[in-house]
């Protein structure tokens, strides 16, 4: 990236000093985003030898294997799990974020802290804690037995339900925080105006509050959905590795199968699909805004 020529007549063209200010950011992006992605792309067209070394000879074999319906089905299932997780996170997280955002100012920081506290413990330890709660002779079933000794114990651990519980638990804060950001900025005068104009509480919520906090919901959705699609540790630990998601398949290629080129091809296709979805959503968003205007 070379500095843009300085044309004094146009003040919007960035000065070389602006580029200098941006340099750390650009270097960071190149080093940690562009270069790794390029390596991934190059590997995805390579072959492997029997000990798993990457051989730099061009092949499309890896992409042919990705097109296998097996992986397509796993990919669709991963999107299903991540979608369900995102919806539950919105339903559970929105009221929490709204209450914190509308709470008295001196309470907000304390309540936010409560949302953050779990992050002080390692993610894996928190997942193991869930195993202790959900297992057959675990805390939940022990509690249920205390209440009614005849009840049949819940069979939760190592089921898809356990996977969704784990995913929601892991990503809920990433939904609450951006929505909180939107709620906090919400202009109370607009809500009052809606009431004055005769809107009931439901109408105010659906026509005023939701649209105004939409940026928070959108950001939260992105922050929850994208990492949830690729998650592999929760499916292994809480799902008993019974149903593979795309994250497990990719992890397996890099570790047990030692097939880095195939893993890279899966990763590249995965990334391409995300970019495509994002682009389509952007186009649709821009289009609907145009029609409103």
């Amino acid at each position: 990236m070379s500095p843009a020529p300085v044309i004094p007549t146009d003040s919007r063209t960035p000065h070389w000093r602006a580029w200098l200010l941006l340099a750390p950011m650009v270097a960071w992006l190149v080093l940690f985003v562009v270069v790794p992605t390029a390596i991934l792309l190059v590997y995805s067209f390579c072959e492997r030898d029997e000990v798993g070394r990457v051989l730099f000879s061009f092949t499309l074999e890896n992409y042919r294997r990705v097109a296998d319906p097996v992986y397509l089905r796993i990919f669709l299932r991963s999107i299903g799990y991540a979608g369900l997780t995102t919806i539950i996170c919105i339903v559970v997280g929105y009221p929490v974020a709204y209450c914190i955002g509308r709470a008295r100012e001196d309470w907000r920081q304390r309540l936010l802290l409560l949302v953050m506290v779990p992050f002080w413990t390692s993610f894996l330890i928190r997942t193991y804690a869930w195993i202790t709660i959900l297992k057959q002779e675990g805390l939940l079933n022990g509690f249920v037995q205390q209440l009614s000794p005849t009840a049949k114990p819940f069979d939760l651990l190592y089921t898809p339900t356990a996977v969704v519980i784990g995913l929601v638990y892991a990503y809920l804060p990433f939904m609450i925080l951006p929505i909180y950001g939107s709620v906090e900025k919400l202009d109370g005068a607009l809500i009052e105006a809606a009431h004055d104009l005769g809107a009931g509480p439901l109408r105010v919520f659906s026509s005023v509050i939701i649209p105004l906090t939409m940026p928070g919901i959108a950001a939260g959705t992105l922050l929850v959905f994208v990492p949830a699609v690729g998650m592999f540790a929760i499916t292994d630990l809480m799902g008993g590795a019974r149903v593979p998601l795309i994250g497990n398949v990719i992890q397996n290629q890099f570790l047990q199968a030692r097939d880095w080129p195939f893993g890279a091809a899966l990763g590249a296709v995965f990334m391409g699909l995300f970019a495509l979805t994002y682009w389509i959503m952007l186009k649709l968003g821009a289009h609907s805004e145009d029609s409103v205007a």
Binding site: K135, Q136, E137, G138, Y158, A241
Partner: peptide, 21 residues
């Protein structure tokens, strides 16, 4: 077989047995 299995675990398969799962 895979329809009958409850847990796939290579790292610590004894855990599920000890836990009674």
């Amino acid at each position: 077989w895979v329809k009958l299995v409850k847990v796939f675990d290579s790292d610590s398969p004894k855990t599920a047995l000890l836990n009674g799962d």
